[in-house]
Amino acid sequence: MSRILIADDNPLSLQFLLEAMTQLGIDADGADDGAAALTQANRQRYDLLLLDNRMPKLSGPDVLKHLRTIGISTPAIATSAEVTPALRADLLATGFAQVLEKPLSLATLENALRPYFAMTLIKPISPETSHIPTTDITKFGPLLDDAAALPGVGGDRIILHALRQLLVDELAAIPDEFARLDKSRDHAALRERLHRLQASAGFCGASVLAAACTKLRRLIDAPGNSTESHIEELRQTAAATLVALRDLSR
């Protein structure tokens, strides 16, 4: 039976991808870091690997390199929350067959996986989902965009609700996490945290939050820029998004 291994250290991203495989009728196993992915790929034969570029312990490229050195030639696709032309070229040169940018839609996944699996959507994407109105709750604008999020989960509101509950847990920890990162001035750790938060926000249709993450990441990478006001802006956006998510659950 055909099977895929999915590795992603972001719990929300991993759950979305596993749910997507269920909808596509593909058996899937999940790993929450590169080391776990390497262990699983050694133990079991897979028809495809879907590896996140940046993970703890071992990155996606590191996992692929290790597997190739021991003779495992399973085809692999890379995922990343921000794909630049240079990163895409590097990942393809490493041996990945494709590079997909997160957040992914179900349709994008289906197209990417079609060469490897015979798929039938268990829950077809409804054409009406693109017309679902957005949720505009606060002065920050449409913090939760259902029209953007639902096509990615095949129009399944139950899956979207489950993903947003994970985002609630993630956002609740943001104030303490960012206070520690701000105090330590560890830009590498802050950049990595923003990378994961951007992916989570994208899967949930939290487009304002995702844009704030992208903006702050770019400022960190630009020498001489002050990030203090933008970190505060991100905190406020995260707080407003958390309120919006909790309001939806009432």
Rank of each mutant, 00 (worst) to 15 (best):
M1E: 13
L5E: 01
A20F: 00
T22V: 13
T22Y: 05
Q23D: 11
D27Q: 14
D27E: 15
D27P: 03
D29C: 07
A31L: 03
D32C: 00
L38K: 04
T39K: 10
Q40M: 13
A41I: 03
A41S: 12
N42S: 12
Y46H: 04
L51V: 07
N53C: 14
R54Y: 10
S59A: 04
V63F: 01
L64K: 02
L67R: 02
L67D: 00
A86F: 06
L91P: 03
G95L: 09
F96L: 08
A97Y: 05
A97R: 07
V99P: 01
K102Y: 00
S105W: 01
A107Y: 04
A107H: 07
A107N: 06
P115S: 13
F117I: 07
A118H: 13
T120K: 10
L121E: 14
K123A: 10
P124S: 10
P124R: 05
E128Q: 09
E128R: 08
S130F: 14
I132L: 10
D136P: 10
L144I: 15
L144A: 11
L144Q: 02
Q165R: 14
L167E: 04
A173V: 05
F178I: 08
F178L: 08
L181F: 06
S184E: 07
A188H: 10
L194C: 05
L197T: 01
C204K: 04
V208P: 01
T214V: 12
T214A: 13
I220L: 14
A222P: 02
T227N: 08
S229F: 14
H230A: 13
E233P: 02
R235A: 13
A239T: 08
A240M: 13
T241S: 14
T241A: 15
L242Q: 07
L242C: 11
L245V: 06
